[in-house]
């Protein structure tokens, strides 16, 4: 990775900044012309006078009477110069709301991502070693089934099974609001993690295992593995020492990518299990006509997608000697 690489990265970074800027601006324009935050106030009972509604909206940079370009200018300069994403429609700071939600999403996704990556990789590699055996065929059909199942169906099926078994596992929200004391909140929290984690696990592990199975099959047919066998290694040694290591490399960028995108949350899972994270916000900000929140999510997601892309490229370059040269 010499100077060429550095310049290449710099050029890409500049391009990325422009991309994020355009993506975020576009989303903001679209959101502010389609969403109507005023509805939230008109539907209040008793309805506040129109003039005060407009005053409130103006103070939050949401007033439809202000020209769109002017609102956009306020929004973008606040972000660029003060790092301030504005206020939600009900007057809270978008920044602090986002911070809270990122934390929730991270807690929800961290365990799921790590567990599903490791087990997905192991499962895929194992299936590749036993290609076309019954276990591999069953795994294949099961993973097709899981890949064809939409997330809400998986989540709600789990809830239903839990209900039928007499609710051994609590699942709505982050923890039981009635829990008293730190310890019981923590245990309740752990319990509430179970079902969403299984949901995410089923989806992610399947994805990883299919991918790992493919790369592993490639490696198993390769010449260097035959060489390893020829020089006297047992099949197990050859596969573990030379095969798996090579086959995991292409999966690593995917892992890095997923870890960075932890913070953007899991829309369906959070919504269904009542976790107030970033994924839920994605849906709620639109249904609540919350223009500034939509804008903030757009910026945040775009930045993370690009960081994740860049990082996973770097990881790949670091791991794969062919790219390094």
């Amino acid at each position: 990775m010499g100077r060429g690489m550095g310049r290449f990265l710099l050029r890409r970074a500049v391009n990325y900044v422009i991309l994020v800027f355009i993506a975020a601006s576009f989303t903001y324009f679209l959101a502010s012309s389609y969403l109507e935050p005023i509805v939230n106030f008109l539907s209040k009972h008793p309805q506040p006078p129109l003039s005060s509604i407009h005053n409130i909206l103006r103070s939050r940079n949401l007033d439809p009477n202000t020209p769109l370009v002017q609102r956009y200018w306020t929004w973008i300069t606040n972000i660029l110069f003060h790092g301030n994403f504005g206020q939600t429609f009900d007057g809270n700071s978008v920044n602090s709301e986002m911070g809270r939600r990122i934390f929730v999403s991270t807690e929800l996704l961290l365990v799921a991502t790590l567990v599903s990556t490791v087990s997905g990789v192991a499962w895929g590699a194992w299936n590749a070693l036993r290609q076309y055996r019954p276990s591999d065929r069953i795994s294949t059909v099961v993973s097709y089934l899981l890949l064809a199942t939409p997330t809400p169906v998986i989540a709600i099926s789990l809830e239903t099974v839990d209900q039928w078994m007499g609710v051994p596992v609590q699942y709505t929200g982050m923890y039981d609001p009635g829990a008293q004391g730190t310890w019981s909140v923590i245990t309740s929290n752990m319990q509430h993690l179970i079902l969403p984690t299984i949901t995410l696990f089923l989806i992610q592990a399947t994805l990883f295992s299919r991918y790992q199975r493919g790369t592993m099959l490639d490696v198993l047919g390769s010449d260097f593995l035959r060489t390893a066998r020829a020089k006297g290694l047992t099949r197990r040694q050859a596969v573990l020492k030379h095969g798996l290591r090579t086959a995991v490399i292409p999966v690593m960028p995917l892992l890095v990518y997923n870890i960075v995108l932890l913070f953007t949350g899991a829309t369906f899972t959070e919504k269904i299990f009542g976790w107030h994270g970033m994924g839920e916000w994605l849906v709620d900000s639109i249904t609540q006509n919350d223009v500034n929140a939509v804008g903030a999510i757009a910026v945040f997601t775009a930045v993370l997608v690009l960081i994740a892309g860049l990082l996973s490229d770097l990881v790949y370059a670091a791991l794969d000697p062919r790219v390094r040269s």
């Binding site: 994805l207 991918y211 960028p253 995917l254 990518y257 997923n258 995108l261 996973s312 790949y316 062919r322």
Partner: peptide, 30 residues
């Protein structure tokens, strides 16, 4: 291996990285 996969003609390694990341993006919909 995965839905929405590439064809038998694989790209360069860099190309593969790009496709990985893009595939992972579908995970966003979880």
């Amino acid at each position: 291996s995965i839905k929405r996969a590439k064809g038998p003609i694989a790209g360069s390694p860099a190309q593969d990285v790009v496709s990985n990341t893009a595939r992972a993006e579908e995970g966003l919909a979880s």
